[in-house]
């Protein structure tokens, strides 16, 4: 056999339908799924705003007042309004999915889903009240 035998770099092409970037608009449940996945962007946005707030707090009263004034701009109010809706959507979908992720058994019986979800909502209420109390007491 001669030494210059080589394999051609042929690769068979599979048949693949191109999926449109907008595939998720075809069905309500798809859209809901994608909106839920997009909540993470808004979660990250508020985490960054909080980091910025913390930084301003450390810089002193003037920098902090400047930060608080920035939040009053229409741009930030609009952004925070939209972000609030997405974050709420995150909370609700997260708590409603919790029973699927956490299976609790009491005396060999599975605790019903609504009890687990209900506990989550209760903890949410208590945690929110605690945060509000800490930030609002005179």
């Amino acid at each position: 056999m001669s030494s210059d035998v080589h394999y051609t770099l042929h690769h068979p092409k599979w048949y693949r339908r191109r999926v449109s970037v907008w595939w998720w608009l075809q069905k309500r449940s798809y859209a809901q799924f994608v909106l839920r996945e997009l909540t993470s962007v808004f979660v990250a946005f508020f985490a960054v705003v909080s980091l910025w707030q913390l930084h301003a707090l450390g810089e002193g009263p003037e920098a902090y007042a400047h930060f608080m004034a920035r939040l009053k701009s229409p741009l930030f109010l609009a952004l925070h309004g939209v972000t609030f809706l997405f974050v709420l959507f995150h909370s609700i979908t997260w708590f409603n999915l919790a029973p699927t992720a956490i299976v609790v058994r009491l005396r060999g019986k599975r605790v019903p889903d609504f009890v687990i979800a209900g506990m989550n909502y209760l903890v949410w209420l208590v945690a929110s009240a605690a945060v509000a109390w800490l930030l609002l007491r005179g």
Binding site: L71, L77, W94
Partner: peptide, 24 residues
């Protein structure tokens, strides 16, 4: 999962107060 739980429990109240209720 832990981050999702923290955000679900605490972000709405912080965002409501800092982002909306205080500036408005």
């Amino acid at each position: 999962s832990a981050g999702g739980t923290v955000a679900a429990l605490l972000f709405p109240i912080h965002l409501f107060l800092t982002g909306l209720a205080f500036p408005l």
